[in-house]
């Protein structure tokens, strides 16, 4: 499984990351180096081995159905690059 320039372009798009055209090729090289090294995992027979879902023996915590949060639109918007009337503002989204 070798990563090429187009693959880097595709995953960068999925990750919403602008990678300059000039970086695609070198990035493909770096990723290939890492994936070749990771290939060694293929040696291990994992048949019947369950995938790890949690490293600790702990039951999922539950919260009570009580309203304890909210009513803080100002604090919520305080860090926003752009906001108006308690809304976050983004460039027009065409659906």
């Amino acid at each position: 499984m070798s990563v090429d320039k187009d693959t880097v372009r595709r995953i960068a798009r999925l990750a919403r990351l602008s990678v300059p055209e000039s970086r695609l090729e070198p990035m493909a090289g770096e990723l290939n180096g890492i994936f070749q090294w990771v290939e060694m995992l293929g040696e291990v027979n994992v048949e019947g081995v369950p995938a790890m879902t949690s490293v600790v023996a702990q039951k999922l915590k539950w919260r009570a159905d009580i309203v304890t949060d909210g009513g803080q639109a100002d604090a919520l918007l305080a860090n926003a690059p752009e906001g108006a009337d308690h809304f976050f503002v983004v460039p027009k989204v065409v659906e």
């Binding site: 919260r63 159905d65 009580i66 309203v67 304890t68 949060d69 909210g70 009513g71 803080q72 639109a73 919520l76 918007l77 009337d85 308690h86 809304f87 976050f88």
Partner: peptide
């Protein structure tokens, strides 16, 4: 339900924008 699936913010319909939002 009164509160959201993973937070304690209210689910009430029709509130002021972003007034029923936890971080």
């Amino acid at each position: 339900s009164n509160a959201k699936l993973f937070s304690g913010a209210s689910t009430e319909f029709g509130a002021e924008p972003n007034s029923q939002v936890s971080f």
